[in-house]
Nucleic acid binder design. Structure first.
Length: 584
DNA sequence: GCCGTTTTCGGCCCGACTGTTTTCAGTCG
């Protein structure tokens, strides 16, 4: 088993132990063990397992090391098999119902003998759930509602679309006379590709009218909680939003706290404790003394912070951009002053993977060029589909060469400030051959190679197929590495590490497809890949003029992957890009 | 289950909201 597969088993064990009513700290140990494995290099994991030294890693002790070793060598774990056999799958599923946690599920299971969601729905309806100790009519109704809405509401939402909902709400809050400060927080502020809900933090000494404004927004379908400091609402799309209102001097602490991530916060609190402080959304207070952190903060014992920079400075750290707050080494980097200078949208001077109406785009070459010019881009790459992508009206050799000529003519005419590169998004056929012969590819400025069919090939075949394309000397960059469509289509099975190795060895770029539905290659892979020499291109994969603006989503993902301008080809000036295409 | 220059036992991040209670447990983030 690979380290990531092992990590999945560990996470699963944590869930099952929770349903068993195990010690919460034991459960946490499995979860953190999984995260540690995920953040390690596969080779390091293998080396440590084989040397019997895996337990030297902080967070992995003797018990976890033994289980990981067993999974690595045999692909199985007796402990896990037995555990899984002892718990009905329906109980695991019940965790997805809002308001149901391990303890309540355990009570329902043990006292009513229920082990499936459908039986649970019946027991809510006939009053058996309401009759349980610790439950009542309201809990039963809430569970029934949760089961009914599980499909629609359990879903995560695309970051890009959630932003479009959230941005006007923040602006609206900021305009209210009772509001001193208002910001978006949560996974949306961190720019995670999908978000569970929206979080808003407001500083105000007069919360009631602000709560009322929020709960009465026209797009609100349901108010699920309404308190003095926190309210939650649900929009028609199923997207949930939380508003938290705090006094002005606590705003920065609340903003940081609710921006997260959880892993980041845990590490920050540990760092605070090492310095004799206890940190919460209420402030940064001495850990000694009477009362809770909240009470201390209310007595004015918190260190002051008007900005997040000050908050981090109290812990002897540089400010960490929200994009990096994922508990992936940013704490250490901020402490030693080695945070990267992250890519910014303004660093981009163009992009390469875009379509016109010659294949499946909606806009003409001229319209796409005009939009690029409006965005201030020095260059635009056109890479329409190749003939094997029949469904996308892919170009054959003749149409492609005509398009190349049209692009050359347009550049020569001087009609646009934006230079256009002639490329192709050429299909990688099932055996790894390309859809155009080498002499055709040689006519182009650059080539994007992508997989568009036979997604169900096994991992070995798919990996070999893509690597063969990566090794082709005409291929400039690999398009959407895994083919995933967020929340809709799983990635195809491919050994991404091997493809990255091959791309580095062959000096082939891997694209960061900036379509908000793709964001592929995933940001979690970029930091290490770039450190090892992989070059990135941020490509909107635009199919209409407005699609070019999706580069913003790609920049966001690149930042989460710790990339700076130096890692991205399309931050380079036109002359350097021309030179790159000539020499690669 | 993990960890340790106060430690090999006794901690492990912290608080709000809800629904059930009459002081709190469970859930959630």
């Amino acid at each position: 088993m690979t380290k990531n597969e092992i990590a999945e088993v560990l996470v699963d064990i944590g869930v099952l132990l929770e349903l068993k009513g195990e010690n919460p700290f034991k459960i946490r140990a499995y979860g953190s063990g999984a995260r540690i494995l995920e953040s390690m290099e596969q080779e390091n994991v293998e080396r440590l397992i084989e040397a019997g030294e895996l337990d030297s890693v902080k967070g992995i002790g003797a018990a976890l090391a033994q289980k990981i070793g067993e999974l690595y060598t045999t692909g199985k774990l007796e402990f896990y098999e037995k555990l899984r056999a002892s718990i009905a799958p329906g109980l695991v599923e019940m965790l997805e119902v809002p308001g149901l946690g391990a303890k309540k599920i355990k009570a329902i299971h043990e006292q009513l003998g229920i082990d499936s969601i459908s039986e649970l729905a019946k027991a809510c309806a006939d009053g058996r759930v309401a009759g349980l100790a610790g439950f009542g009519a309201k809990s039963a109704a809430k569970i029934a509602e949760g089961i009914k809405n599980r499909e629609a509401y359990g879903k995560r939402h695309l970051w890009w679309l959630a932003q479009e909902v959230g941005a006007p709400i923040v602006q609206g809050l900021q305009k209210l006379s009772q509001v001193e400060r208002a910001e978006s927080a949560g996974s949306s502020r961190r720019g995670v590709e999908t978000v569970g809900d929206l979080d808003f933090i407001v500083a105000s000494s007069d919360p009631e009218p602000v709560m009322a404004w929020f709960c009465e927004l026209p797009e609100v379908k349901e108010v699920t909680a309404r308190g003095d400091t926190k309210s939650s609402v649900r929009f028609d799309s199923g997207l949930q939003a939380d508003l938290r209102i705090v006094p002005a001097d606590q705003f920065v602490f609340a903003l940081h706290h609710f921006t997260g991530s959880k892993d980041h916060n845990v590490a920050m609190r540990q760092r605070a404790l090492e310095r004799g402080y206890s940190m919460s959304e209420w402030g940064l207070v001495p850990s000694e003394g009477e009362g809770t952190a909240k009470e201390k903060a209310e007595r004015g014992e918190s260190l002051p912070a008007d900005s997040e920079e000050q908050l981090f400075a109290h812990l002897d750290m540089a400010w960490v951009p929200p994009a990096l707050r994922e508990g992936r080494g940013e704490i250490e980097a901020a402490a030693e002053g080695s945070l990267p200078r992250l890519l910014e949208l303004g660093d981009l001077r163009g992009a390469f993977h875009n379509h016109t109406n010659a294949s499946d785009g909606k806009a003409t070459l001229r319209e796409m060029t005009a939009k690029a010019e409006e965005l201030g881009w020095e260059y635009l790459g056109i890479a329409d589909h190749s003939k094997a992508s029949f469904q996308a009206n892919g170009l054959d050799e003749e149409r492609l060469l005509n398009q190349v000529q049209a692009i050359r003519d347009q550049n020569a005419s001087g009609a646009s400030q934006t230079w256009v590169f002639a490329g192709s998004e050429v299909d990688i056929l099932t055996d790894g051959q390309l859809d155009f012969a080498d002499d055709v590819l040689a006519e182009l400025d650059y080539v994007v190679a992508s997989v568009h069919n036979a997604f169900s090939q096994d991992e070995a075949k798919m990996t070999a197929r893509i690597i063969r394309a990566v090794e082709n000397e005409h291929v400039t960059m690999l398009g959407h590495l895994t083919g995933r469509i967020l929340l809709r289509r799983e990635p195809y099975r491919v050994d991404v590490e091997k493809v990255i190795d091959a791309a580095i060895a062959n000096q082939t770029i891997i694209e960061l497809n900036a379509s908000p539905w793709r964001l592929d290659m995933d940001w979690r892979l970029w930091r290490k890949a770039a450190e090892r020499g992989l070059l990135c291109a941020i490509n909107p994969d635009a199919h209409e003029t407005s699609g070019l603006e999706h580069v913003a989503a790609g920049v966001n993902s690149a930042r989460k992957g710790w990339l700076g301008a130096e890692h991205v080809l399309n931050t380079r000036p036109l002359d350097q890009v021309k030179q790159y295409f000539t020499s690669h």
